[in-house]
Write a protein that binds this DNA or RNA. Structure first.
Lengths: 87, 87
DNA sequence: AGACATTTGTACGTATGTATT
DNA sequence: AAATACATACGTACAAATGTC
């Protein structure tokens, strides 16, 4: 039935056709849409995501850059990454 | 008199207030405006810039990402980084 | 004031993958 | 087949800003 879960329980598969930073983007996008984090509230810190998904921080940052491009989040230096308000 | 040269002879100063990837951005921007590379022609490769300016490839890539944001260049995977045509 | 932890920013080096020439 | 060039990913280190105590 279902493919990969996209919640907090999702895992990164280094052998999957989709590269890890894009897998994480799908996971975080799903979590945001699901409401794991509210608008203008911070998502998990980079280091938390590193530990949670077992990937390098540089990979996490690559993912966040993608989410910023997509307009899903915004970064406040030294504060955190926040969920963008809809519209 | 003059500050830092911004041509091919320019060097990266790791002690300067401006971080290296932004210094390189200024240098490459000046070189493009000066006509070192023509529109739709490739600029120096990442590895060439690494050797020419003595910085890490990741730093060169950070600079190129900035130039892409600025609309000065565009990247063709496995081909090179090209000067954007004006307008 | 000062110390401390947290968080993002920058930079390095290395390795491997994939596409083009 | 080989060289070139960009893409991705890892790990490490230190800097700078913020917030808390």
């Amino acid at each position: 039935m279902q493919g990969e879960p996209l919640g907090p329980e999702a895992e990164i598969d280094h052998d999957a056709p989709l590269v890890p930073y894009r897998q994480l983007a799908q996971i975080l996008t799903a979590r945001i849409h699901r409401g794991d984090w509210q608008p203008d509230r911070p998502i998990a810190s980079e280091n938390q995501l590193v530990q949670e998904y077992g990937i390098a921080r540089s990979t996490v940052r690559r993912t966040i850059a993608l989410l910023v491009e997509d307009g899903l989040v915004y970064v406040v230096p030294h504060r955190g990454t926040f969920v963008q308000k809809p519209e």
